[in-house]
């Protein structure tokens, strides 16, 4: 086991200990805080699969967060609370929309790709805003959390916490297998040297498109979790700053690693949700320059501080 793997594993153990520690301290609030963190960690890991490993700078990843959330919220609005159905829709719908967006945007590269992914996400955002039936701008409340008859009851905050943790671990496991598989080598090769990939015989487009779909589907699942967490869904889930936020987590933690996005999600969410707001109302005036500094001087992220070969 490499040092980073040890580090990631101990981090996950710590996350598993959050509910008992919070209970002991009489601060159940932290269960909520860390549940939200882990949901964003799943989203960040999914983005890292295409951004860090695949070199696809998608600035529209929040779209799938929103799609996953509405895929739970809309059935619930019509009285369907079955989580098996809702979450399946969330994953499939996200993959389908990623297929469409990817099929158009992956034909381009560089700046075009960034702008197009951003633009399509904005389109979905405006779609959410303009559909009054589902609350438009204001969004809608989730009448009840997804139900999983005979499996788990998400109404219990701690139970839900562990469900999210299990899904995070599963995402990391799937991600690990993925990036080291033949498929993963193709994705990473495409990031390293696209012309070389094509010259040795890889039609890279289809692999990138499938990776784009997988990342979308995984983030859609995070969206389904997020709506259950907040018990509310609004177009804000798809706001472009949300995409920037997730991207920041990946960079802050260290892209092209699996532990990095998780660490980035923990640090950024704690900064944004707890530390900075408690200090000043205008915390974004601090966060913005901080982001600039991270990009300029700490490109390898927090994980880069741990000396280890760059690997899954």
């Amino acid at each position: 086991m490499t040092r980073r793997t040890v580090f990631l594993a101990s981090g996950l153990v710590l996350l598993a200990l959050v509910p008992p520690i919070a209970a002991a301290l009489g601060q159940p609030f932290y269960v909520d805080v860390f549940r939200r963190i882990m949901i964003f960690a799943i989203a960040a890991v999914s983005l890292d699969l295409i951004l860090g490993y695949g070199g696809m700078v998608s600035f529209g990843h929040a779209a799938y967060l929103g799609i996953g959330a509405y895929a739970v919220g809309i059935p619930a609005y019509y009285g369907l609370h079955n989580g098996y159905v809702q979450w399946t829709i969330a994953v499939l719908a996200s993959a389908a929309i990623a297929l469409v967006i990817g099929a158009i945007s992956l034909r381009t590269s560089g700046v075009y790709f960034i702008m197009i992914t951003l633009a399509f996400t904005q389109m979905l955002y405006y779609l959410g805003v303009s559909v009054e039936e589902y609350g438009g701008d204001d969004g809608m409340r989730l009448a009840a959390r997804s139900t999983f008859a005979g499996l788990v009851d998400l109404r219990g905050g701690t139970t839900f916490y562990y469900v999210v943790l299990v899904l995070l671990v599963l995402s990391l496991g799937v991600g690990h297998r993925l990036i080291n598989s033949r498929f993963g080598m193709v994705i990473r090769g495409g990031r390293s040297n696209e012309a070389r990939m094509r010259a040795i015989g890889f039609a890279t487009f289809r692999y990138k498109l499938v990776a784009f779909m997988i990342a979308g589907a995984m983030c859609g699942l995070a969206g389904a979790l997020l709506v259950n967490h907040t018990e509310y869904v609004t177009p804000e889930f798809m706001h472009w700053t949300r995409s920037g936020d997730i991207m920041f987590m990946v960079i802050l933690g260290g892209m092209g690693t699996l532990g990095g996005p998780v660490l980035g999600a923990v640090v950024l969410r704690l900064l944004e949700d707890l530390l900075l707001p408690s200090w000043t109302e205008h915390w974004q005036a601090i966060l913005g320059p901080f982001l600039v500094l991270v990009v300029l001087f700490a490109k390898r992220g927090l994980v880069g501080l741990l000396p280890e070969r760059r690997d899954g």
């Binding site: 297998r177 993925l178 080291n180 598989s181 033949r182 498929f183 993963g184 080598m185 890889f202 499938v210």
Partner: peptide
């Protein structure tokens, strides 16, 4: 190369 699970480096 749509093989998603087995590690390529052990292949």
């Amino acid at each position: 190369s749509f093989a998603f699970w087995r590690p390529a480096r052990a292949d």
